[in-house]
Nucleic acid binder design. Structure first.
Lengths: 341, 341
DNA sequence: ATGAAAGCGCTAACAA
DNA sequence: TTGTTAGCGCTTTCAT
């Protein structure tokens, strides 16, 4: 292995001079700089990242915590999109991106704590926080740098990036209400996630505003792996009286819902209107194209990574909690445009 | 920061003894072992991974190189599936998984070379090799440990895991030929990837076996980001005489093809048969459900990671190039079962 | 069974 | 502007 000493010897300088050239220190004459660079080139020298990390007390790496099984995370377009945003930033800032890869929450919490304690990563980006998230509590307690994508409850000082879930769900349901729907089924994600809580709250808000009572029979929580969407869709369609519209908290679940509706020989949107969430790429390809909420996933990923790096650099991040807006995208799964805005 | 010295002091032993306890060295009395462990617990000690890496000359990390833009990689279910397989292994073996995140091939090659030279990772897993892949050539030249998922051309000694692309494409096309199709359009991926070359070869093999001449007009290469599938589908459908079947080299592209076919007021499979590749999760949800080739993506990911780790451990891997078999999954997009096998 | 000492490859005071 | 020296936190000979 070529080390800094080899370069120093060849260039006839001390190792510290080489080190200074690496970090482009100002007080090095152009002449020696050139000579050292040539020696590096000649020897094919690359600084040893690990040695550097040791002395700098920083791995210059960010950990990404999925907060769900690897399987269900990777198969969701949301994940791809957030990863795209994060990696855009890590790449630019020369950070290493480390993926946590656990099979369940408990393993993940342990792994993740170990990762920071062992200094494999300088900071963490956490997706999909849970209600009373144990891991987040511990990280905060140990004062480990992290930023959450989503909303954390019961924690005062922390960094987070989120979209306006309550408002977004509210807009979606109001859209259906404006179209005249009153029995609106809600297929939500697992109740343990705060983002599902928030969407539930938005759903209720809209109904109440229109004087419609929230009927829990019309609400279902699907599993995070989306294996039971279709079944839950059938259940909801069998309710008497049948819901005339579906608010589905993730476009991925719409696939199962569409199937259940079509199998019941019902037409979308004539018999049942459907509105989704996320605006995944395939939403426009569904039949009929899906009306849904577009959330700026890529931007959230970017913001999360930028926040984390800024915090690690000791910069002030203000505000510590950012909320990005979403937008209702009207396609054909709910029928005509609403009368009133 | 709690170091090995702090633990040593508290447990009244030398740092080397603590180090031995960490790695569970045999020649340490149970009594001291216990005492040291207690001290660790009490202080909340975690070994510094970086210091350890420095002396062990190993980062205990694997880099994953996507070989395409972050965007197009992450949006393909193939990627999620391979990542799932890889992470299953890295997790079990306590390896850190590092994601390379470049926007284009040139950047990626540079980044990736830097990653290994700087010792951020011990080895690399490379996806989707290109014909005459520059990066792979360089890695081999510098003797850097890597394993490729796919086929590499023009390189003698290397490790690789692949599926039987030629055979798989051959089966797919033969299936169509057995059903009586003779004008079979082929929507392939970019010609620069070896897996596309292989699928092309399988396509030709089958046609020739049935005495059908290969007509290049019926062959198109889609972009890796799947943005032009629909357009290419329309082009192919406008050919005179019109193809009666489509062999599509990635299920993701089938979405565009289905759309083109339906817009032309043609029925699947009555007017046009379609066969895909990958057996992505959504294949069964398409209308009609897609006949496709199932490749063991998860297993390939596992095998790749296992191979890489074995190689790093100095174990012998035999054979160095593994080929996993794929399987034709018959659903409804090609109509009836073929008469002959 | 345990400790002392050297050193992994680098950086950063402090000197010169 | 450059070199000398100490040391980041750990492991590993070599002694004892």
């Amino acid at each position: 292995m070529v080390t800094i000493k080899d370069v120093a010897r060849l260039a006839n300088v001390s190792p510290s001079t080489v080190s200074r050239v690496i970090s482009d220190h100002k007080s090095i004459s152009d002449e020696t700089k050139e000579r050292v660079r040539q020696a590096m080139e000649e020897l094919g020298y690359y600084p040893n990242f690990i040695a550097r990390s040791l002395i700098k007390r920083s791995s210059h790496a960010l950990g990404l915590i999925l907060s769900r099984s690897t399987e269900s995370a990777f198969s969701n377009p949301f994940f791809a999109e957030i990863l795209r945003g994060i990696s855009k930033v890590t790449q630019k800032r020369q950070y290493t991106l480390v993926l946590s890869t656990a099979e369940n929450y408990k393993d993940e919490a342990k792994q993740c704590l170990q990762m920071v304690m062992e200094r494999r990563v300088d900071g963490l980006i956490l997706l999909a926080p849970r209600v009373n998230d144990e891991l987040i509590r511990k990280l905060a307690q140990n004062k480990h740098p992290f930023v959450v994508v989503g909303r954390v409850n019961g924690l005062q000082h922390h960094y987070a990036v989120n979209n306006d879930n309550i408002q977004a769900a509210y807009s979606a349901v109001r859209h259906l209400l404006n179209l005249g729907h009153r029995r609106i089924a809600f297929l939500n994600g697992p109740a343990e996630y705060t983002f599902c809580q928030d969407r539930y709250q938005g759903y209720c808000m809209a109904l109440r505003e229109f004087g419609v009572e929230v009927d829990e029979r019309y609400i279902r929580h699907a599993q995070i792996d989306h294996k039971d969407d279709y079944e839950l869709g059938k259940e909801l369609l069998n309710l008497k009286p049948r819901p005339t519209a579906f608010f589905v908290a993730d476009d991925l679940m719409v696939i199962g819902i569409y199937r259940a509706i079509k199998e019941a020989k019902l037409k979308i949107p004539q018999d049942v209107a459907v509105i989704g969430f996320n605006d995944d790429a395939f939403a426009t390809l569904l039949d009929p194209p899906l009306t849904t909420i577009r959330i700026p996933i890529y931007e959230m990923g970017k913001a999360a990574a930028e926040t984390m790096i800024a915090v690690l650099n000791g910069e002030e991040v203000n505000p510590p909690q950012k909320i990005l807006s979403s937008e209702l995208v009207i396609r054909e799964s709910c029928g005509a445009k609403p009368l009133s805005q």
